[in-house]
């Protein structure tokens, strides 16, 4: 992974041209909706949330967690490819609250034809109550890399 975490060789076993779909589940990840992170996210997204709730799209931030990012990079295929988002969905049972701990269950499916990465995330409380489901669909785009000059 380079400094920005994209487009570096990762020694992937999942080359973009491989035939069968691949499904990987990560172990549960504990996260917290820190007030500072939520405030920054609200500021940059024109947010209208008040009353201690977290912006609806805030959980996409957790796709950048090291474990998730590493999985994305691995499944994309490394250097020469970038993910381009083409779809997103959220289904909420309960709004998320600021300064609260949650548990993420994440799975990623790499579809070969067409080349897509579908990430599914369930957000639940520490007691196991489901709060939200997310699905992120990424198209995998080959880069037209110019030779170094």
């Amino acid at each position: 992974m380079n400094a920005r975490g994209h487009a570096q060789p990762v020694g992937s076993d999942f080359a973009p041209e491989s035939g069968a779909d691949t499904l990987i589940r990560l172990p549960p990840i504990r996260v917290r909706t820190g007030a500072g992170e939520v405030a920054g996210f609200l500021r940059e997204t024109g947010g209208a949330r008040t009353g201690g709730f977290v912006p609806l799209t805030f959980p996409v931030r957790w796709l950048a967690l090291p474990a998730v990012r590493g999985l994305i990079l691995q499944l994309i295929g490394g250097q020469g490819f970038l993910p381009v988002q083409e779809g997103q969905s959220f289904a909420y049972e309960h709004e998320l609250r600021i300064e609260t701990d949650y548990v993420l269950d994440i799975e990623a499916r790499r579809a070969a034809k067409p080349p897509r990465l579908i990430l599914r995330m369930a957000v639940s409380t520490g007691q196991g109550e489901i709060c939200a489901h997310l699905e992120t669909v990424l198209r995998i785009v080959p880069l037209n890399l110019e030779p170094a000059s």
């Binding site: 997204t45 947010g47 997103q88 959220f90 909420y92």
Partner: peptide, 28 residues
């Protein structure tokens, strides 16, 4: 895309404050 998509929530909540957004989906 998610920055654009994120604008749907303030659009809805400025329209009416008496709503819970149970589902939101989009195609980019």
């Amino acid at each position: 895309g998610m920055l654009i998509f994120s604008c749907f929530e303030p659009l809805i909540m400025r329209w009416r404050r008496d709503l819970f957004i149970a589902r939101l989906s989009g195609k980019f």
